[in-house]
Design a protein around this nucleic acid. Sequence first.
DNA 1: GGAAAGTTTCAATACCTTCTGAAACATCGT
DNA 2: ACGATGTTTCAGAAGGTATTGAAACTTTCC
Lengths: 178, 178
Amino acid sequence: MAMPGGDLRLAQDRFVAAWGQMGTAWGISRTMAEVHALLYITGEALCTDDIMARLEISRGNASMSLRALLDWGIVTRAHKRGDRKEYFLAEQDVWVMARAILRERLKREVEPLMAAMHETRDMTRASQGRRKDYDDHHERLDELLGLFEVMEVLVQRFVGPAGEGLQAAATLLKPDEP
Amino acid sequence: MAMPGGDLRLAQDRFVAAWGQMGTAWGISRTMAEVHALLYITGEALCTDDIMARLEISRGNASMSLRALLDWGIVTRAHKRGDRKEYFLAEQDVWVMARAILRERLKREVEPLMAAMHETRDMTRASQGRRKDYDDHHERLDELLGLFEVMEVLVQRFVGPAGEGLQAAATLLKPDEP
DNA sequence: GGAAAGTTTCAATACCTTCTGAAACATCGT
DNA sequence: ACGATGTTTCAGAAGGTATTGAAACTTTCC
């Protein structure tokens, strides 16, 4: 019975805000998350000016965020016939989206950490097997490296190239619950 | 060949720095991550002053970070006989640690988001089935909610109360590779 | 009970990331 | 080739979170 029309926009705004919030909590700039949220929830191809207007952000900010989203592979360029303006479209398959995000974060943040841990371990290799404190140190590093390796395999397996794995695994897991 | 003794400390510092860096990238304060890293990698029970000295941070900061780590359940209090000072010890089982971290973040960041998405969907329920744009909007929200639900189940299943699931799953997955 | 040792809180400050706005740059149509 | 339209970059400003340092509070021991 409410007047229909404005509430869709309100709902979109709510979603954009929530998604933006989540972004900040996970180390993604709020605007970047909001731009993505807007493109996803509208499902439309929007141009930079549309985004600027809707989110009330500057051109520079919009441009930077769009570039980053393109880098992440969760937004693609689109063109409208007879219009040389560039439009942007969010990946609509949430599984593809999740894959892209996980892959990117794994590459950017987890792999450097693992490399650092390996280097850290090498720093004290000379004293290995001669002193308990050094051995304990190595074991702790190895435990952590093991954890990350397993997680990496899991992620790559589920959201890697094949992709449908996650879905299958999830349904496979559910029946076990009472 | 290198003089042994100092290099363990250097290696620990390296690890602390790397872990701290990772923290910031995932929305955890650098200091909190560093305190945790220090406690984990030394494996020792350290008191606030030890941590302050080693990390060169203020008392207030150390206190806040320790409190947060206790809240997360990845650091516990420890007492030394004949010393009324409080010491802190990091959880040494990396699987327990991972479980605690995932559980906490799920609760703090994912669940509020899901709640917001449900609310968002309810905001436009009135127009459901009457206009295509509204229906598309609902479908997009449902897709995303579905993704999060599956991920939640996965995480809860693997790192939930039972705990050893992840390890098993990982070894189960590995053989598939060529 | 009171001094000493330990712990927590909080307003002020520092720091760092994000954002703006404008200028430089690129591309297209005529 | 030139003007018009669209895009990127960047130095400076804004904003927000993390950190400090000191004061308030708590506990323990004599």
